[in-house]
């Protein structure tokens, strides 16, 4: 339990650090971005929006930095991340809440499948060294060095196109309205297959490799020899003795690499014009939509932290040593 509380404290601290970082980044922007935005939108911005922008960019000269910081926190707690310019006059929080489910479903499910599949193959590759499983290594090395988004481009080029089963862009058929019905869900699944496959192929190799190396290390432990000597079946030794112990470092590695993986998957969304956070981020970049960019960064960070917390819970369940205090 104490371990768990420590982790929660750490994540709260990290969230604080990320939000503070988010507070300072716009203050690096040279000049007065708000004035240029006001000029660009010619009176379409309400005075409230302008005030919110000034707070966001820290150009509210009447207030001290500390006061600005407090205001910023107040805004965050109200869920107010400012107004988006790209989707004007929608607030950032609304834009993000539309995009978030797409990303969470696509990236979340694919990452978990990739981890499970990679770990499974890694167990095999580590256990059966010197067999065909060694052939996995060069292939996976190559795929792990390819940028996710390039693999996406190639996948579109080879597999998608007119008349193909795989659509090349979007998250659902343009004629449909998002809803939980029998038309929309199959269409959404069909559109997400190719992006998911891309992420899967490029991310699975890392797990195979790390699990293989852990298996190789664990396999030389004495308890493995003892298990063999006891006459336990090969499968039982491999799964319950070796894999179970090799899994632990892999789970903590999983938690820590999440930040890296999410970054790569955002790019896949861009290539496939998938209506998630990555694609929204691209649109925000094109329009210099700072409030939206920051909002997305914040949401991604918080999601990664939550995912990390879940991985920690999994670790807790897998490793009896961490819960000996009860």
């Amino acid at each position: 339990m104490r371990y768990f509380l420590q982790r929660i404290a750490f994540y709260l601290f990290t969230a604080w650090a990320a939000i503070t970082l988010n507070f300072f980044i716009p203050r690096l922007v040279p000049g007065d971005p708000v004035q240029s935005l006001i000029a660009k939108y010619r009176g379409q911005l309400s005075s409230e929006a302008i005030q919110s922008l000034y707070v966001l960019f820290g150009l509210d000269k009447q207030e001290s930095l500390w006061q600005q910081y407090l205001d910023y926190w107040k805004q965050i707690f109200q869920g107010d991340l400012g107004l988006s310019f790209t989707f004007f006059p929608a607030p950032v929080s609304q834009v993000i809440s539309q995009a978030l489910p797409w990303t969470v479903l696509l990236v979340g499910i694919t990452t978990i499948i990739s981890f499970l599949l990679g770990t499974g193959l890694g167990v095999l590759a580590g256990w059966r060294r010197g067999s065909w499983a060694d052939g996995l290594l060069p292939v996976t090395t190559f795929f792990s060095s390819v940028p996710y988004f390039w693999l996406g481009i190639i996948a579109i080029y080879l597999l998608a196109g007119p008349g193909s089963f795989f659509p090349s862009s979007g998250g659902f058929d343009s004629g449909l309205v998002p809803a939980w019905d029998q038309y929309f869900i199959p269409s959404a699944i069909q559109h997400s297959l190719l992006p998911a496959l891309t992420i899967l192929i490029s991310s699975v190799s890392g797990w195979i490799l790390s699990m293989r190396n852990m298996m190789v290390t664990v396999a030389s432990e004495d308890y493995i020899t003892v298990a063999h000597a006891k006459g336990l079946s090969e499968r039982r030794v491999a799964v319950s003795y070796a894999a179970r112990n090799a899994l632990l470092p892999n789970v903590s590695g999983f938690a820590l690499s999440l930040g890296f993986i999410v970054g790569g998957t955002l790019l896949v969304e861009i290539v496939f014009s998938y209506p998630g956070l990555g694609f929204t981020l691209l649109q925000a970049l094109g329009a210099k939509d700072y409030p939206l960019m920051q909002g997305i960064f914040l949401v991604i960070t918080i999601s990664v932290l939550v995912a990390n917390l879940l991985a920690d819970v999994a670790y807790l369940l897998l490793d009896p040593r961490t819960r000996k205090e009860g």
């Binding site: 750490f10 990290t14 970082l21 980044i25 690096l28 820590l256 930040g259 890296f260 970054g263 960070t301």
Partner: peptide
């Protein structure tokens, strides 16, 4: 090490995108 872990957990790519787009 707390500092290093904080930097580690914050997703690097979105952060880089934001910083470089501002610079």
């Amino acid at each position: 090490s707390a500092f290093a872990n904080v930097i580690l957990v914050i997703p690097a790519v979105p952060l880089m995108i934001i910083i470089t787009s501002i610079l």
